[in-house]
Structures are given as C-alpha cells and as structure tokens.
Simulated assay, not measured.
Amino acid sequence: MIFDWSSVASVIHPPLHAEGDNTTTAEEKSFKYLKKFCPGCGIPHLIQNRIIGGEKAKIEMFPWQVSLRDAFHDNKHFCGGTLINPRFVLTAATCFLNRLKKGQLFPAKRTYSVLGVSIIGEEDGAIVRHTRRKDHIFHPEFGFNTFKNNVALLELNKLVKRNDLPRPVCLGDKLDYSVGDSAIATGYGTTSAGILPENRFLRTMKTKIQHDDLCGVALTEYSKGFDPRTQLCTYTRRKSVAWYDEGGPLVVYRKGRYIQIGIINPYTSTNLSGGYSPSVYTDVAKVSDWIRRWADRPTCRYV
C-alpha cells in the first residue's frame, strides 16, 4: 500500500503556534524557564542500581515517561512518549495511524498525555496535559510503508512545572552509544508475545544494542524491514518491547543521567527460535536536529 501524503501535507509542517496565539510568554521566549527546568534532565528522583528486564518500575526512576491516552476510546493508554522539555512530548508517528482504517490518521487533538504514573488506573497526583494543536507534527520524511524517520512531537496545552514530579529526559547531540552497550526501554506494554490485555504497570527492559547487520538479517521477514540509516535495534534473548510500548524511550545511562537514544517502533512480532525478535527504534541522533528545530526552543540537551 502506498500512502498519499498529499491529503495531510498541512500536518507535516504546521506552524508551532497558531496565528493570533499570544499564549507564548516572555519567559519562554527568553529561555529563562528552560534554563531553570533543564538542569535536572535525565536525573531520576529514585535510583535503582539493579534493573532486570520485565521488572515493575516506579515512575520516580523514569520521570520523563508519558502515557498517551485516546479521549475517544475510554481514555485508554495506546502509546508511550517522553517529556523532552516543558512544552513537548516526543513519540512515534506510527502511534497516530488509524489501525481500523488503514492509510488514515486519527486526530492529534483527541490525544492527551499523562505524566507521573507508575500504575495505569492508580493516578492520584498525575499530571495531565491535553494536546494544544489539532495538527500532527511529523518528520517530513516519515515513511508510512517503511517506518523511516518514525518520530512525532506533541505540543502540550500547558507547561510542565519545574516543581512537578515529571522531569525531561536528556537528548544527546551525537551518537551516545556503541554496539554491545546496555540500554533500557520503558513502557506500559504487554508482558508476553502476541496481542494480550494491556499491562497496567510501568516496566523496564534491560537489553543490548546490536550491530546493524544482525538486525537486518534477523528482520528480513518483518514486513517493514530494517533501515540502519534511521533506526537502531536491540536484542536480548526472550526480551522484547511489545504492544503499547510504541513511542516510548530507549535510554542509556551516562555520568549520572539518562539520555534517550531511541524511540520504540511498533512491535515486530517475528520469533527467533523461541527467543522473540530484535526490538526496533528510531535513532534519536539521526533526527535530533529536526526535533530541536520543530520544538521551537532548545531541548534539554546532554553535552
């Protein structure tokens, strides 16, 4: 299937602030707020020295984790995301493809973000932010058929306050990983292969970054293939990201901070001799310039 982007051209390059919108404050324009907000990027409120794949996690360990909800379907969690500055959430463009009507997008405006939650359904004290714009903010080279440049931004209707529990993750300016490095994926996805009822708990998956060649060979049967120019992959036997993890972060730990290096792509569903399949991510370093340009202000960077 070839997706006709001509019908949604306006949503790929929307102006970040609607005409006549005067809600951007002088504080934002001068970046003073960002300077106060970003020094804590990537620093958890709670550190756990030993993380094993599949463990339940407290949101204080990964306070940038976002649960995206669909206001039109009983407010259900459908994707993950990451807080990257006080105004924007980073996620996957594929989260907004309508699974029921192929080739169509469901409106960004029906999405809202929930931050500060360890268990879905137990959300006292959660921070809720609605999507400010009705338009999607997609990478201009997002490939519907290939998932190339699978990245999207959501602009929140209100800033996340500096004294709230959520903190932004750090985004690096360069490749902050090597083959064989340990990394951690987080999300509220299912805990077994296949489509099962949603998991309620935030969980972690500790995994290892793999060479592009291994990913390319292992994923030849995966309908979308693997594109080393825009993607990276991880593999640890019997561990994989799953349904509803999509859009969430893959992070590495560097000098006391977590840096997001990947955005979880849709579940790959292939099986390597009972050991599940490699997990695929959009490589954040390859799209970081676009993220910073379209976030309309600096992201919280790790240098």
Rank of each mutant, 00 (worst) to 15 (best):
F201A: 10
A285C: 04
L250E: 01
K255N: 06
A242D: 07
K58W: 13
D283L: 02
G53M: 08
G143H: 03
W64E: 01
P298N: 02
F226M: 11
R292I: 05
I184N: 03
A242Y: 10
K102P: 01
P44H: 06
V89T: 08
T220H: 15
G143P: 04
C38Y: 10
I127T: 09
R293P: 02
K158A: 14
L250H: 01
Y33K: 07
L154V: 08
I59Q: 02
A92P: 01
I43T: 01
G81C: 06
N145Y: 06
P44W: 07
I52A: 07
T94H: 15
E246F: 12
N145P: 07
R200D: 09
T191Q: 14
G20P: 09
I259E: 00
I84A: 11
K102D: 10
K58Q: 11
L34A: 03
T299W: 09
D4I: 14
G54A: 06
T23K: 11
L196W: 08
A295F: 05
L83I: 04
N149K: 11
C95E: 07
I261W: 00
Y267H: 09
K158D: 15
S223P: 06
R162I: 15
A126E: 09
W64P: 00
T299R: 03
R238V: 12
T191D: 08
Q104Y: 14
W294L: 11
G256C: 09
H130N: 12
G40T: 09
I2P: 15
R110Y: 14
I184W: 02
Q210G: 00
V169H: 05
T207D: 00
E122M: 15
S288G: 04
K102S: 07
N149I: 09
P166R: 15
R167M: 10
K158C: 15
E246D: 13
S288V: 08
E28D: 09
F144W: 14
S223I: 06
K286Q: 05
E123S: 08
S223C: 05
I261Y: 00
A18Q: 08
V287I: 01
C215R: 00
V11M: 15
K35H: 12
G121M: 15
E141F: 11
L46Y: 12
G143A: 06
D181K: 01
V11Q: 13
T25H: 10
L196K: 06
D124A: 12
N199R: 08
P278T: 01
T220K: 15
F78L: 10
G187R: 02
K206L: 11
S30Y: 05
L46S: 12
E123C: 13
M205N: 08
A183Y: 00
V160S: 13
L196R: 10
E60H: 02
N157Q: 12
R254T: 00
A183M: 00
N157P: 13
G180S: 02
C79Y: 06
Y267I: 10
L97C: 12
K76R: 14
C38P: 03
H130K: 05
E60G: 03
A126W: 08
T299E: 03
E198C: 09
I47M: 08
R237W: 12
L115N: 04
C170I: 08
C38Q: 03
F106I: 11
A26G: 13
F72Q: 04
P39E: 03
G256E: 05
T23I: 07
G54H: 03
G81Q: 06
T111Q: 10
T146H: 14
K239G: 00
Y177W: 00
F37S: 01
T207F: 00
K29L: 10
